[in-house]
Design a protein around this nucleic acid. Structure first.
Lengths: 213, 213
DNA sequence: ACATTTTTAGGAACGCGTTCCATTATTGCA
DNA sequence: TGCAATAATGGAACGCGTTCCTAAAAATGT
């Protein structure tokens, strides 16, 4: 494959897209291993660089910041989450049951994998613009089937007049944000004496479904 | 006031409780000013120490960590939030209306004061035990009237059989966690294309209330 | 052959939260 | 009076995420 992608010009030629991708893939691969082996607290730019055989500065040459690098872990995490959701709804067909099971599996997944929750939701990029992470969202949506299954189940409920609310996107977000609140609150506010999480999930979900019917 | 709180013993006498409290209050006061004047990103231990006329090490002598220091900002923030809630429900008496208005005011407050949200919910102490922050929770609960008003309104609804669920604490937490999810998700997941927050709040709250009735 | 230009990588620095080791202050004991 | 003991403070260090300034690599132009 020809590597020159521009007219000949002075100066050191830029790396080919393939080469760039190879280096990025290496760094991402090492990041994933580090996260799996040593967890959230020990995944640092310096350690990643060391294991990738480069220096921290190099990582900032290929990635905007740590959060962009961690995007690739997000995709893996959401794939695993999706597998669990897909397994949990394996023999279900009723949309309400699918909603029920995916919602519950989603919250329980974060409660069971708190470091994974943190690596996604507790590292904020204050300088990012809204369109900044659209790419990662698209990656997640395209690889995590459970999101589309969940959206379809909600849409089916709306089409079948199970739900009075007609705006699919809004209903999806209502469910998603309440599930996220359960996970977020229970994980990060440890000083609160929470009721049994299973009971909280069940009460919230039943109330939402009943209220939307 | 006698300052010796122990039998005479060798070594430098410890500061009196009053003196300790004075120093802590000074540091807290400076922290609040810095947060108000320069916001979340610029409230650092070094800057606080500088303005308090001490060094960072001193802050760690009087406070466990940065998060414990920020607890005192939390109390102020929750007091302000409570004032807004109390103002919003000023002439209301119906418990359901009170729940409605407090819930909405609570979410909107965080959406309107995102730095205040971050200073409370985005700085996690991974080494803390559950009982670690119980003191701050008590401080918040005793100074933020809206929490008790909210709990009472929910309890009234349960007593009046408006809600089928009989566990007041659970219902309170269901409302709280869903409100928190709305704020948390909208603030920290900027890459998502959210529906209008007012609509999300309204749909979620109406669904919860209807579902609990 | 050397200078210039452009890209990629390197070393060090920045400010952060936090901790380590040392110093100073202040007491009682021998 | 000097030493030991205890508390409070000090300076520096640690590792973090990130950026700055510089160097090396690799090309073209003169």
């Amino acid at each position: 494959m020809a590597t020159i992608t521009k007219k000949k010009q002075r100066g050191r030629p830029a790396q080919s897209a393939a080469k760039k991708e190879e280096i990025r893939a290496k760094i991402v691969s090492v990041s994933k291993e580090l996260f799996i082996n040593e967890g959230f607290e020990n995944i640092s730019i310096r350690k990643i660089a060391q294991q990738a055989g480069c220096i921290p500065r190099t990582i900032y040459y290929y990635f905007e910041n740590k959060r962009e690098l961690l995007h690739y872990l997000w995709v893996d995490i959401f794939k695993t989450l999706s597998s669990e959701c897909e397994r949990a709804i394996k023999s279900l067909e009723a949309p309400l049951e699918i909603i029920h099971v995916i919602y519950t599996t989603y919250v329980n997944y974060w409660l069971a994998h708190r470091d994974q929750y943190r690596v996604i939701f507790m590292i904020e990029d204050l300088n990012a613009t809204s369109n900044h992470d659209t790419a990662v969202l698209d990656m997640i949506k395209s690889s995590a089937k459970f999101i589309r299954i969940f959206e379809k189940a909600i849409n089916d409920c709306i089409q079948n007049k199970v739900f009075k609310e007609k705006n699919t996107n809004r209903v999806v977000q209502v469910f998603f944000l309440s599930a996220h609140g359960l996970a977020s609150g229970i994980i990060t506010m440890r000083e609160m004496k929470w009721e049994n999480p299973d009971a909280l999930i069940k009460s919230t979900l039943n109330a939402l479904i009943t209220g939307l019917e």
